[in-house]
């Protein structure tokens, strides 16, 4: 696999994950349990949209063919998205959203930390900025999960249920294929086995503090590197892409 092709694919993996999670978090707009959380989730969403845009722009320059950040975001079909499966899972209750946020922002934190040392200048610039943002996301969601886990019987039960449901999607976040092999050999991307270790340490710290148990791995679902998804992505895309599909080229 050529390096440029691998970089393009790698951009999509990160950008698609951010875009889909941003879309999910935006669903909380006007539905947050309190005003501050409504603002928090939409702020996090905005950061993720911005991060996605940076990488889509980079991917578009590699692809050529008049591709733009918008055409990549809005005009692909389900199997052409490579977002991590956990990002497309439904928001559920507040506990589900916060547990998902801990799992995913901890992952972003360690992945971006490694990309800050990438041999690719764009990835480096992207990660140096984005890591400052995801650290705020991780801090915010961790504080909530610790509060929910140590809160009432009800909040504890719901948080544990959220973790039990989402844990099986975490294996997918660290899957590697020939894209990773190529980029690891060029010093551009990290070995996900290493990221997995540091991620496990961080989330274990948070869940221990929250008095939640990390469940056994059962019914693992993976496949995002190949564009295989759970049933939820199609529904997200139909809503997100509606305008550009109905009115191609429409601008604000």
């Amino acid at each position: 696999m050529k390096t440029q092709e691998a970089i393009y694919q790698y951009c999509l993996r990160i950008a698609d994950s951010n875009l889909i999670l941003a879309q999910r978090l935006a669903e909380w707009c006007s539905r947050g349990p309190i005003l501050e959380e409504d603002l928090a989730m939409t702020n996090i969403s905005l950061d993720l949209f911005g991060q996605a845009e940076t990488l889509y722009e980079y991917a578009a320059t590699i692809k050529g063919d008049n591709a733009t950040a918008d055409s990549l975001a809005f005009l692909r079909v389900e199997r052409e998205y490579f977002n991590r499966l956990i990002t497309e899972q439904p928001n559920g209750d507040f506990a589900v959203t916060m547990v998902r946020e801990v799992l995913f922002s901890a992952y972003q934190n360690h992945l971006y930390e490694a990309l800050c040392k990438s041999n690719d200048e764009m990835f480096r610039g992207f990660a140096e900025k984005a890591i400052k943002e995801v650290r705020y996301h991780l801090r915010h969601s961790s504080e909530w999960v610790i509060r929910l886990g140590g809160g009432t019987e009800e909040s504890k039960v719901r948080s544990q249920a959220a973790l039990n449901e989402l844990w099986r999607f975490t294996v997918d976040m660290f899957e590697m294929d020939e894209v990773d092999e190529e980029l690891i050999s060029m010093g551009i991307a990290p070995d996900m086995k290493e990221i997995n270790k540091s991620w496990m340490k961080t989330v274990t710290e948070v869940f221990t503090e929250a008095e939640l148990h990390i469940p056994d791995l059962n019914n693992v679902i993976k496949g995002s590197n190949k564009g295989i998804h759970t049933e939820h992505l199609g529904h997200i895309l139909s809503e997100m892409q509606y305008l550009q599909r109905a009115f191609p080229g429409a601008t604000w």
């Binding site: 969403s45 905005l46 993720l48």
Partner: peptide, 8 residues
């Protein structure tokens, strides 16, 4: 240079 990634 951009500030926050998503700053409108």
């Amino acid at each position: 240079t951009p500030t926050y990634s998503g700053c409108p």
